[in-house]
Structure formats: C-alpha cells, structure tokens
Design a protein around this nucleic acid. Structure first.
Lengths: 257, 257
DNA sequence: CGGACTTTTGACCAGGCTCAATAATAGTGG
DNA sequence: CCACTATTATTGAGCCTGGTCAAAAGTCCG
C-alpha cells in the first residue's frame, strides 16, 4: 500500500553535446537558481563554520529511482541536496500518487519536526546529498541563530509555494497548470535570462503529471497545445524553450514576473 | 481583478436552541481543538508574560465577509485569532477562487516573512483577533526563544497540512475530498469524541467548494452521496453527524485516526 | 540493429461543471 | 408569532475537460 504505481524502471538522462537550441540540450545545463541558493546558505556561515557543519554529516549519492526515505519512516536526518533533483510524493492506498514538491540542489529537506516523514523522497536523476543526524544538527543550530532564522524563512517560503500549488491544483486547467510549472522552473534562475531561454526538465511526463494532478497523456496534450500556440518549443534532450514568456504568464494567470 | 466572484452578501449564523442531534445545533458548539491550541500557546508564556504580549497589540472584531487584509497588501501585522473562523484565499484574474486554508480560534496568521500577503484573509463568521505590529512582535520574540520555536513548529505543521491538501486536490474524487474535509474538522478536537459526534460547519457550500477545488453543486451532491451511504447525517444548524467514522476514513483514503 | 522505455496521438468514456429550476433556511417587519 | 423576502442548499439535464485504453512514433543505449 506504500509502493509507487509505476514499475521501478531506470531512466538515464540525455547526453547532449551542443547548447544551441537547434541541437540537444547539454546534460550539465546550468541552474543559476540552485547556485544562488547554495550561495545564500554559505553566506550565513564563514568557511570554517561551514566546514564544521559539513563534518557533522556524511555525503551520499542516490541513483535515479532510489529513495532517501519513505513515507512514514521515522525522521532521523536532515538533508541538504548538493546535486541532482528529488521528487517528494504521497501515495493513496490504491496507488494514486501526488508529487508535493521537487527538491533542487541547494535545498534543505527534512526540517519538519514530526516524528515520521509525511512523504517519500526519491531521486529523479542521480543526486548527491549531505545527511546530518537530527541531534547534532539541532545542537549546531543552537549556536547559530542566523542559520535557524534562515531555515525558518525557508519553511515559510515552502509554505507559500505549497499554497500557490493548491490554487494550481484546485482551480487551473491543464494548459494553465503546465504554463505555471514551466514558469516556476524558469523563475528558479535569477534574471537576466538567456535568450533564447531553455529550461531543462529533469523529470519525465509521468512525474510532471503527478505534480500537476493530471495524467501523463493530458500533460503530453498540454505540451502539444502550448507548442502549437507558439508559446514554447521542445528542444531535444528534455529541453523546453520559452518562446513567448508573456503569453505563458497570461495563460498561467499569475502575476507577471 | 482582485474581487471575489460572489457578491458580498452578509449572512448571520444560526441561533440553535438544543444540543440534541435531532434538534438544531447550538451556535456556541464547543471546539475543543481550538481550546487546546490556545492552551499550547499559553503554556509557553506565564500569565505575566502573556499579559505583556497582549499589551503589545490591540484587539479587533471582524464581521462576516470583512477582510483582515487582502492579497498583495503589505504585511504589517501578526494576528492571533481568538474567536470565530477566517478563510484564506487566492484569486485568479478571472475570479476563480481557491481557499488555501481556514483559520480557527487560537491560530496565528501572518507569520510569513514576505513583504506582501500571498492571500486574502476574510471572516467566515464573526471573529475576534489580536493584532500586533511586526516590529514589536519580532523584538518580543527575541526575548522568548521558546515562543519562536513554537511558531516554527506551527509553520512546519501548516506546511505538512498544505501538502496533504495538495494530494486531496490533485488526486481525490469529490466524495473522497469531502470525507477528508469532514474528518479534518473532526480531528481538530482531541479524543475522546462525543457520541454521536457532530461537527459544525462555519462555512457555506461555496466556501467548502473553493477549498476542495470543486463547485458548490458538486459539494452538495457529495454531501447527498455520503448521507445516502449512511456515513453522515445532516443536522439542522450547519451540523454534520459522523455516523460511520471508519467508513469515512476508508473513503478519505488516509491513515485511520 | 534491437529491445525497453518514453512520448505522442486517437477514440471513447465519465466525473464534474454549467445552466436552470425548486426547496429549504434565515432574517425582517408587522 | 407569522407572512414575506433574500439567501443558501439541493436536484436535474446536458455538456466538456480530462481520464482510460490502445496503438504508433520517437529515444536511448547496449
């Protein structure tokens, strides 16, 4: 009753060779947003403190489809993702799945205070992370109030994003949901944005569907609809070019960036 | 573009006379859960500190359909609801509305750190609240780390609830959503529960619909379906009797209480 | 080249939405 | 206390978006 509905098949990411929009997307497509978050974290701690912080934990690697922990597992660690992407999901008894968020490099995970995890954390693509037991982590926090405050801001930000997603799930049509999602990925990177702007999709159609409360077929149709409307272009290697950003924003119904 | 779709008509609460399930539901239907939360808050502060805390702010009253603040308003205050119920909602440009949460007596509001509110807070029924400017509130927090920690736990709890709601909105059918909602209301009160157990709905069908991502007609049909299945009973005066709790839990697809 | 996936498209179906009518409640003034 | 009115809740009929099932096309990698 706690297993994903899809078989645990493994998928490997594209190995693009050229950064041109006409060619495949490079696998090491830069995510300026992730870099910015890592930098924010480091800004709080000087180099020496950061080293002591990292020494508290251990570094690990998760391949695609590996789980860091499952729903209902006891919460033993706090995680900081240093590379890759995770998906966080809840399952209904009959296998229906809802992805409640993606975790990108630089993000913290497991800061909640419950005794058991409310969701499963699974790697979408090969990931590296730093894991720290909760006890040492809490003691470290006691000596670094600035960090504690920063983590509180993180939680508040996550809450705001979760509420935005509630509006997406409760009130938007399929094409509006997809437009919102693509802009969300794009907005992780601070401006100025590259022209043409291309976002890389680390997750497949099924994952996008489970995040947007749709089926993979409907997600495909929505991609096609946006493409035929001239709003996006599909780039080989899991890339999506945002051709008419204003049009996407209008469709997403959100406030323009 | 920021106005609710429904006209701002005013509605007054029922004035029930008898607590029997066969009669109308009393207007002052007790909410033990609210009391428990207030108590948690008070447990952190001794009587004298609590008095000083309250002296920092001012008490206000909001009638049904009055707003404490609107989406995009600058965040100037922190709120503590002492009586009544609020709904928090976001609006799409065309008037579609999503209620991202209800606020009950004892709950804090506005602890997020953004400069602008991400949602509108409107009274569902007559409410009383204590309002404290953010500056004094932050200074008070600096001297009371226990309270700061408690508020962090609150945010973490809100985040967990928002993610649960994402699963409701993304993956559950109408009757499952309603069952989940009714259990949510019921679970606000700590056991042991009264027999027969009756929850009072402070909000109307439209608000429930906007919370569950449905229309008011579908909510009505779901109520009828649960009633015909013998799971609930509708009590005059906005009451719902949970007749077969196990059945509701099975339908909601969540973990049994 | 070949096999396993993933993505895309098509045809059909159904759960929930829209529009509309009726019933039930709550508030008002006599 | 009761008729009268406004609002809310319920039910019905038909439609539409998105789900289901199935098949074809495209990718990835050995």
């Amino acid at each position: 009753m706690r297993r994903p509905s899809e078989p645990p098949a493994r998928s490997r990411r594209a190995r693009g060779r050229s950064g041109a929009v006409t060619g495949p997307l490079p696998a090491d497509h830069p995510c300026a947003g992730c870099a910015a978050r890592l930098e924010t974290f480091c800004r709080i701690l000087d180099a020496e403190t950061l080293a002591r912080f990292k020494a508290l934990g251990s570094t690990h690697r998760a391949e695609s489809h590996q789980c860091l922990f499952h729903e209902d597992d006891p919460t033993r660690f706090v995680y900081n993702l240093t590379r890759g992407t995770l998906k966080l999901y809840q399952l209904l008894p009959d296998g229906r799945r809802q992805i409640v968020g993606f975790v990108h490099a630089g993000d913290f995970l497991g800061l909640g205070t419950d005794t058991a995890h409310a969701f499963t954390a699974e790697a979408v693509e090969a990931a590296e992370y730093c894991r720290i037991a909760r006890g040492p982590f809490a003691r470290f926090l006691d000596g670094h109030r600035g960090l504690a405050r920063e983590l509180y801001l993180t939680a508040a930000q996550d809450l705001a994003e979760a509420r935005e997603q509630m509006t997406v799930l409760g009130r938007k049509r399929a094409d509006e949901r997809l437009a919102t999602f693509l802009l969300e990925l794009s907005n992780r990177m601070p401006p100025p944005r590259a022209r043409p702007e291309v976002v890389r999709l680390a997750m497949n159609r099924t994952d996008i569907a489970d995040y947007l409360g749709l089926t993979k077929e409907t997600v495909c149709r929505a991609f096609t609809a946006l493409r035929k409307a001239g709003l996006i272009g599909l780039v080989p290697g899991h890339g999506v070019e945002l051709i008419r950003r204003r049009g996407l924003e209008a469709l997403a119904g959100g406030d323009p960036d």
